[in-house]
Amino acid sequence: MPKKRQDAAEEFLKGLWRDNPVFVQVLGMCPMLAVTNSAVNALAMGGATFFVLVASSFLVSSLKRWIPKQVRISTYIIIIATFVTVTDFTLQAVVPVIHKELGAFIPLIVANCMILGRQEAFASKNTVSMAVVDAVGMASGFLIALFALGSVREILGDGALFGISLFGPNFEPWVIMILPPGGFLTLGLILLFFNWLKERKDRIVARLDEMEAEV
């Protein structure tokens, strides 16, 4: 089944890069900016979101036949909330230090519009395996975005990565980057970079079209 495999790869890459939930769609910012002040927190948050998204996509797509259309959104929210509660208690038991650091932002994964969006836009309309592939792609894209944001902020704001000092004692940390304003600024600058990439690509495509027309 080469065609099916190709589709799956396409769905996966879509979440990872072309429709990246954070950098392209700008979704799920609420629980994201607050916890990306260090790379470890960003990874923990990304991992938690990963589990919740994949598990809920799996459940929603396997139950799609029995979910009445009128109450589908509330059903999705309850499914998501259940998995978030599971994640919350698991993190509390396994890594209490990180759980304390992330605090109230773990339960707030429920309000991440990206997760609900994937259920409504994809999982409720596709087969179980496709829904899982889509969820894994989107969640990986989210995880990578969080990690990028978290490591940029930690390197600039603390002069360290994963708590290991990078620049030696002479580095003057840029404290504002690990404070809330740094989250807004970093994401703003990253989006700017993506705009620039897109515009450059559009320009190249336009040039190629022109050249073709001349020929």
Partner: peptide
Amino acid sequence: RLIRGTAMNLIIAGILSM
């Protein structure tokens, strides 16, 4: 033109937050 939209809004929000 490049910075218009969400990117600029986020940077404004960052300055406000500061």
